[in-house]
């Protein structure tokens, strides 16, 4: 324990800058991915053909290994290979690919009687989405978001292999110096960060869906 603490103190400047990058890389792709996946999922839930196309596309995107995306994106975006932007965009793509499927499934799973009832009392399509579909689908979407957030965090460190600096550097550092301390410290950082996201999204869902608490026995 003291070894971890000493290490943290001795290297705090470096670790702090890595941590900032890691935080950005965990947060921005999550928000961007969700923002893109919501309209895409809505579109996919509306028509069979958009559904098939979007789900095939997201399935293919999700299949591409992260390291490969980190490598190919600089070519497509014109960014430098060591830029953190590549990592951010790649992670956004994963979050998007994962959430499109979840959101589509969640929106399609809303009972059709409920939708018919909403239409019958005079909701327009958009009002219906906002007032009925999204609230009902929220718990499922949130569950998908939790998975996305957690795997997102665990993917960030892969960027160390191509040399993009973030907390994953603790691992490569530990390997090159053959010391356990930074490795363990890194593992703790990433796991804690993942659980923080998990808990935060869970708490947010509770706040957003108060009716579910009432229904719990």
């Amino acid at each position: 324990m003291t070894a971890l603490w000493d290490y943290l103190r001795d290297n705090h400047a470096e670790i702090q800058s890595w941590a900032v990058t890691t935080l950005w890389l965990s947060l921005l792709p999550l928000l961007a991915g969700l923002a893109l996946a919501l309209p895409a999922g809505w579109l996919a839930a509306r028509h069979a053909w958009t559904r098939d196309t979007l789900l095939a596309l997201s399935g293919a995107l999700y299949t591409i290994p992260s390291l490969v995306l980190f490598l190919v994106l600089p070519e497509l975006l014109g960014t430098r290979i060591l830029s953190a932007v590549n990592v951010g965009v790649a992670l956004t793509i994963y979050v998007f690919a994962l959430l499109v499927r979840t959101i589509t499934d969640a929106l399609t799973a809303v009972p059709s009687e409920l939708l018919a009832a909403a239409t019958a009392i005079g909701h327009s399509n958009l009002q219906r989405l906002w007032a009925v579909q999204l609230p009902v689908a929220t718990p499922v979407i949130a569950a998908g978001l939790r998975v996305a957030a957690v795997s997102n965090v665990s993917l960030i460190s892969v960027a160390s292999i191509i040399g993009v600096s973030q907390l994953g550097q603790l691992f490569t550092l530990g390997e090159s110096t053959e010391t356990l301390t930074p490795i363990v410290l890194g593992l703790i950082f990433f796991v804690v960060l993942a659980f923080l996201y998990d808990g935060a999204i869970l708490a947010l869902t509770r706040v957003l869906t108060p009716w579910r608490k009432a229904a719990r026995p």
Binding site: S154, I156, E175, I183
Partner: peptide, 19 residues
């Protein structure tokens, strides 16, 4: 399975190599 999702593969790999 859930907890494992949070563990970075690279970290685990390097931990095992060193250990």
């Amino acid at each position: 399975a859930n907890a494992l999702r949070a563990v970075p593969a690279l970290g685990l790999l390097i931990l095992l190599i060193v250990e």
